[in-house]
Design a protein around this nucleic acid. Sequence first.
DNA 1: ATCAGGTATGCCTTTTGCGCATCGAACGAT
DNA 2: ATCGTTCGATGCGCAAAAGGCATACCTGAT
Lengths: 291, 291
Amino acid sequence: MYTLDQLVGFVAVAEEGSFAGAADRLSMTQPPLSRQVRKLERDVGVELLVRHHRGARPTPAGRVFLDEARRLLARAESSRLRARSVAAGTTGTVRIAFTAVSALTVLGPWASTLTEQLPDVDLILTEMVTGEQVDALLAGEIDVGLARGPARIHPLTARPVASESMVLAVPNGHPLTRLRGAATLSDVAAHPLVTYAPAAARYLYETVAAVFRDADLTPHYVQHVAQVNSVLALVGAGLGVALVPSSVATLHLPSVTYLEVLDIPDHAVQVHCVWRSDNDNPALARALTFI
Amino acid sequence: MYTLDQLVGFVAVAEEGSFAGAADRLSMTQPPLSRQVRKLERDVGVELLVRHHRGARPTPAGRVFLDEARRLLARAESSRLRARSVAAGTTGTVRIAFTAVSALTVLGPWASTLTEQLPDVDLILTEMVTGEQVDALLAGEIDVGLARGPARIHPLTARPVASESMVLAVPNGHPLTRLRGAATLSDVAAHPLVTYAPAAARYLYETVAAVFRDADLTPHYVQHVAQVNSVLALVGAGLGVALVPSSVATLHLPSVTYLEVLDIPDHAVQVHCVWRSDNDNPALARALTFI
DNA sequence: ATCAGGTATGCCTTTTGCGCATCGAACGAT
DNA sequence: ATCGTTCGATGCGCAAAAGGCATACCTGAT
């Protein structure tokens, strides 16, 4: 197999039109350059240059090979740059999993920051509930998850990235609206409660359950719905009230009013960013600096 | 600049998953392979493999670089084959010039043989009169010409490739048809003669002129036409008779009859293949073996 | 015929690369 | 917890390769 240095030498001779001139350009003397090119010719098995007393000119095969050599050298150089870029994390892929809640809060701003700051990093976004995210992280199928945390399983590291309280969504004209925008959990427990499906929206389901359990209250569940949007629709239709993350209150529906709940914990809904500490994806490390 | 051998080593390690295994595959020992790969990493400026107690696995940058390396090696190999093919004349380009006469006789069979036998050789065909062909050959603009020859200018070599006589084209019912298919030059000189334009069909013009000059006859020229087809059309229209190369007689026009001319030289029309003896295009050398 | 400009060759030195022997690290088995 | 096994890394010596210098050789121009 020939050497890239031999290609450099050959290209220089072909471009300069002489061995002596090319040797000068390459900061070397002419004899080793001659030997270099001859070695290349022996390897390729073809005479690439015709030498005459006044320089050297490429043969037809040499002209074709010159083209190939230039392309090869350019490619060799760009492959180095590309590898460096991947190592620096400015090129590559980050596979991100997110939950319904995180999609509303941290995912959007983060993803738009990433596409702006790391334009050559591809993002693969998949919605998963927390448990699925943990499995996928351990299996190496995703690089990072936005989930309830912190997961305490060994190779996983978690960092809180957002927390918010919950507010009460009620239909317009509901009796609780008379409380002037502030209710308590016992008020909530007195009414039918639309809540989340344990499977598809497990985090919110468990968060709501925990809130009432801690307050020693037993709400009256009337529905289990997967999507936050669906919850609001049912509330608007008058089927009950619902606790939703505060960020959801930014969605204004004509038939739904939001009330503060006084005795709900401030950071009831938390989003953690979870990844494997032994993940060697440099694009992940880079992406984590933007969250 | 790194070495293609280093790439081979790196690819082998990445594929085998271990330095020792790769060294075995490459028929070398493990220490120099380790050093090879490390040198490559130092050159690229990136850690390509993570070594652990049970082999080595590529980093994300290493996976990307592995792809590049494989492509690079494949390209390096194919560039050798390509150069060899060009040198052997089975790949490349042959620029062929031809005259109107040669187009009817040798060009067609030769070109079809070439496209069949040398499918990777591109043919560039250009119609030129003999003088233009000589200029183009000397200027290096074409590789070979099919022309009247032989040219005696120094770097040019010529080889006769076809010769033919001329026949007389007359309109149907012309008085000369009563001669039962055989006329003489003096018969021809007694009738208006459609002949060739000296500029665009110089060879045939001069050939016809020479035929009559040698016979001490002065024909009555009535037209100077560039194309053989046009000559036949004018003959068919009754404007005169014409001498055309025998091969033209294969074109049957409803209103034209061909007569043999008894005292016309057998090899009046000759086609030579002309090229520069110092032309180093291997595809030309190859192509010349098929004419 | 000689000269000039460029390439090939001989010879020496330096550098590079390989192989052998060995060390060190890290898991698995006991 | 310790030992053993299995990797990769390292030190060393030798051989091959590559570079530089001096020079021979070739060929068109003067």
